[in-house]
Design a protein around this nucleic acid. Structure first.
Length: 931
DNA sequence: TGCGTCACG
DNA sequence: GACGTACGTGACGCAG
């Protein structure tokens, strides 16, 4: 075979795939301008858009260096002149206002910025950036390049092909052919037809009235293009639509021409001139200095230093590079990966499934990562192709993978690292596997940074690795056209799945060493990590729900809602949407002229919340009470009686919630899909829903509540002798508070009710205004109550002050077990934000300590029950201070003291409390009956 | 998607 | 005295 001279040379590197990035500069400018407040350079010129643009371009270049390795880059601008489209249609872009005055002088500076980065800056008089981009796309594609268009302009999506994608840097989303098709319902090459039919009010492309994206897509799907639609008007069923198409046929044709991108121009730079090079620092430094961009100058300084010192091996921001990820389809290769994992002792793991719900989905594949950039994907249940493109999917059988993977998963000598491992654990358990010896990067992040940011993988990757993982929706699409992961081709699935494991492993390397250095190891190791498998079991177990009972409630609520609706409409003198706060406000305060309507500042709407409506009801306005009743019933029906029926898992007949471990800032759990931590109990009518949560045959529901745990913890933490003594003697704490604060003159019941409110207010960080509101007093009276409280219990005031001071020094507060809540806003210049952080600072240690205690109880519970021989008892739910169990009838007596003892001593031995913890236990055929 | 509302601790 | 007004959650319907 004849070889080209290059191939025989000493460095036989294969020609790198060329990849051209085209930045839609105008889009960048407007987003930068609108995102930033006014800002001037030392010369007094406004530069907010310049600054934003420079920052965005810099970030883009950095990101690209890290991930995509582009070879060519250019920024394209609109030339500030009329273009050929105005000749076709004088009103084209007529709706667009002229650029704001303080943006005008920034345009040339922005072009300077581009040049300072040594990036070509391209524009052509008479043409829009879109056309120039289209031309380069055509040229580059013909030359075998890949192309990425950096823009969020939907018109440019027309250009997407298998070799051309779009990148929206604001949303951090990439759009390939599938994503565009998913978004618009038609492939990119048909997008022009859709855009023409729907028109664009911003660009003033007329389109056809009454045709939006959905209708346009349907028409194009059916008839192929605009001409096809116009030629087949007789087939269009909807009369109004046909009429509009008929009447606006010419506008549709014109629109088609307007949205067409011109790709036969001869742009000023050749492709070769767009080649990307490392920007020399000097021109960039000069530009930044001239504009007074100090933080960027500092960053540039750091970078040149780093470059001189030669890259440190452990440089945290090293780019996210990786070899091609391997798709494992032979047992030999699987053996290699598993042996290597054993040898290294650490492996990141991630499971891919057919759905988000770990209790309903099926396992599709598993990915592993051994080292940064070294990861693989093991497909086990991808579906075979269909039709002409049928391609047999070559993959291992799950049984074989399971036999080899299983022992590794339970071998504590090999650390398994995952992100949100509870999900994987639930899936694996359903497929017959267990897990021991693991770290969860989501929980590590939560231990280190609760309060600073969220802990999802994409966000962590972005923040700590400077890398945006392939978005899930780019692999599977969204909405109606979303496919399941088992339908994704193996190459694509591998890129996505292996990357997740790779990211997880890299995050673990960053987080794990920080844990002990930052002294947050304890709750991670002794609370959250061991709780994870306990929660997995609870989620798998689920709770039985009486579907018929819910259906009956739904029906009853339905008729009552209908009746109330009629009454409300009659009282209002005509129909309106009761559920629309806007319409309701207008009906009450304008049409009906009720007094007291006040508009909220932000939305300019009348307030119609419970407080307002109760005021009106108190004044004798019947409609207000009817609306309140209507609201209560619709809430109960839609959120509970309807939704819970839909949440019943058809396979298990039970409802399986998901407990989130890294959402609440304080250490609490949260519950979703469905939320079983907010099932009604406070009103009798809502309480009926609790009665639909039932035990399976031969069992009862047992509910165990900590009695006033937060107030007890406050008494301990703030060291209030009177309160501690009262709890030790099992006294009524609210009655005590009432005596101390209000004396004995008031009616004891009313006095106790108020004292209870005051006690809650204390836990939440009191203000005279808030307390006055709750108690219906004026501020002066509320302030006197607070003063009296602090006078009687000075420990509370000291505790609050010390907690806030400590938080100011460190930026965080801690629970008795060392859990940390970060409150960066404690230093905010905005007093409202700062005070908010101060109240949270007072509350978080108390709420968080309570969360730690019940979590510790949950961790011990399974073993304690097993040791007592109570193997049939199941812990089902946690509701912050309550645990819900399903207990065989004959075990109730034996289980009760075990559960009580575990819960009441859960703080020990780590922490000793100066107040006892009290637990109240009830049982019954349903959750409602157990209280 | 953001907002208003309301369910829970 | 400015700020906005009790802490922590999740789900639903409306409207743009």
């Amino acid at each position: 075979m004849a070889t080209a001279p290059d191939d025989t040379a000493a460095a036989p590197a294969p020609a790198k795939q060329k990849h051209l990035y085209l930045v839609d500069g105008s889009g960048f400018i407007f987003r930068a301008y609108h995102r930033l407040p006014p800002l001037n350079n030392p010369a007094g010129t406004p530069v907010n858009a310049v600054y934003g643009f420079t920052a965005m371009l810099w970030k883009l270049i950095e990101d690209l260096h890290g991930a995509e390795e582009p070879t060519h880059l250019a920024v394209i601008f609109d030339a500030a002149k009329d273009n050929f489209r105005n000749e076709l249609y004088a009103d084209y872009k007529a709706n667009r206002p002229p650029p704001p005055e303080d943006l005008l002088p920034q345009f040339p500076l922005i072009r300077d910025a581009v040049r300072a980065f040594s990036v070509p800056c391209i524009e052509m008089s008479g043409f829009e950036a879109d056309d120039i981009i289209a031309c380069y796309v055509a040229q580059a594609t013909a030359a075998g390049y890949n192309v990425t268009i950096v823009s969020s302009d939907k018109d440019l999506m027309q250009l997407v092909t298998p070799h051309v994608d779009m990148l929206d840097t604001m949303k951090n989303e990439r759009y390939g052919v599938e994503a565009v098709t998913a978004k618009w319902g038609v492939p990119p090459e048909k997008l022009g037809e859709v855009l023409a039919l729907m028109g664009d009010s911003v660009d003033n492309v007329p389109g056809v009235p009454g045709v939006g994206p959905k209708t346009a897509a349907e028409l194009v799907q059916q008839f192929g293009d605009v001409e096809g639609v116009l030629a087949n008007l007789d087939q269009i069923k909807k009369p109004k639509l046909r009429e509009n198409l008929e009447a606006h046929a010419e506008m549709a044709r014109l629109s088609r021409v307007l949205v067409e991108l011109k790709c036969d121009l001869d742009p000023p730079h050749t492709l070769g001139e767009l080649v990307m090079r490392d920007p020399p620092h000097d021109p960039l430094r000069a530009f930044l200095a001239e504009q007074g961009f100090k933080s960027m100058l500092a960053k540039l300084g750091r970078e040149s230093q780093a470059a001189e010192v030669a890259a440190q091996p452990d440089e945290p921001e090293k780019p996210f590079v990786h070899a091609e990820y391997e798709t494992v389809i032979t047992l030999d290769r699987l053996d290699w990966w598993l042996a290597e994992a054993r040898a290294r002792g650490v492996v990141a793991i991630d499971t891919e499934t057919t759905a988000k719900d770990p209790v309903r989905c099926d396992l599709v594949g598993v990915s592993l990562a051994l080292d940064a950039g070294l990861a693989c994907y093991i497909p086990v249940a991808h579906v075979q192709g269909e039709g002409l493109l049928a391609e047999k999917v070559d993959q291992l059988a799950w049984q074989d993978v399971k036999e080899k993977l299983g022992p590794l998963l339970v071998d504590p000598a090999v650390l398994k690292v995952g992100q949100n491992l509870k999900y994987d654990l639930v899936v694996l358990k359903r497929h017959g596997l267990d897990l021991a010896g693991f770290d969860d990067t989501m929980l590590l992040s939560y231990a280190l940074s609760a309060g600073k940011h969220n802990h999802g993988m994409d966000e962590l990757s972005e923040k700590y690795l400077g890398h945006t993982p392939i978005p899930f929706k780019e692999v599977c699409g969204t909405g109606k056209s979303q496919c399941t992961f088992d339908q994704v081709p193996l190459k694509r699935a591998t890129d996505y799945a292996a990357e997740d494991a790779d990211v997880t492993l890299r995050l673990h390397r960053l987080f794990r060493p920080r844990l002990s250095a930052e002294q947050v190891t304890r709750t991670y190791e002794t609370v959250d990590k061991p709780l994870l498998p306990v929660l997995a079991d609870m989620e798998l177990e689920g709770i039985k729900v009486d579907r018929e009972a819910l259906a009956r409630l739904s029906a009853t609520f339905g008729t009552e809602i209908a009746a109330l609706e009629t009454e409300v409409h009659d009282l209002a003198g005509g129909p309106f949407t009761i559920g629309s706060p806007k319409q309701l406000g207008e009906v009450l305060f304008e049409r009906m002229q009720l007094s007291g309507g006040k508009k909220s500042g932000k939305s300019g709407q009348y307030a119609t919340d419970v407080n307002e409506l109760e005021k009106l009801a108190g004044q004798g306005h019947v409609i207000a009470q009817k609306v309140l009743d209507w609201r209560q019933l619709t809430k109960l029906k839609s959120t509970y009686t309807d939704a819970l029926q839909a949440a019943i898992n058809p396979k298990t007949g039970r409802v399986h919630t998901c407990f989130s471990m890294a959402v609440a800032q304080t250490g609490r759990l949260s519950s979703t899909d469905p939320n079983l931590q907010n099932i009604p109990i406070r009103t009798e009518i809502g309480r009926q829903i609790r009665h639909a949560f039932v035990a399976k045959p031969g069992h009862v529901i047992l509910a165990a509540d900590y009695n006033q745990i937060e107030l007890r913890l406050a008494a301990h933490m703030a060291d209030v002798p009177e309160l501690k003594r009262a709890y030790a003697n099992n006294e009524d704490i609210h009655a005590l508070t009432a005596r101390e604060v209000f004396g004995t003159e008031m009616d004891p019941q009313e006095s106790r009710r108020r004292a209870k409110t005051v006690n809650f207010a204390i836990l939440y960080g009191i203000s005279a205004f808030g307390l006055a509101n709750r108690l219906g007093l004026d501020r002066g009276e509320a302030q006197r109550i607070i003063d009296a409280y602090f006078a009687r219990f000075p420990g509370i005031r000291n505790f609050m002050a010390e907690t806030i001071n400590g938080c100011r020094e460190t930026g965080f507060v801690t629970t008795l077990f060392g859990r940390r809540t970060n409150l960066p806003l404690i230093h905010s210049k905005n007093p409202a934000e700062r005070q908010f952080a101060e109240r949270a600072a007072v509350n978080a240690p108390v709420q968080g300590t309570s969360a730690d205690i019940i979590k510790r109880a949950m961790i011990r519970m399974p073993l304690a029950l097993a040791e007592a021989g109570l193997t049939g008892v199941r812990m089902l739910l946690q509701v912050h201070d309550e645990l819900v169990f399903e207990v065989p009838e004959r075990d109730v007596e034996a289980a009760t003291p075990v559960i009580r003892s575990v819960m009441e001593s859960a703080h020990r031995p780590a922490v000793e409390l100066s107040v006892p913890l009290g637990v109240e236990i009830g049982t019954g055929p349903s959750w409602g009956a157990a209280h």
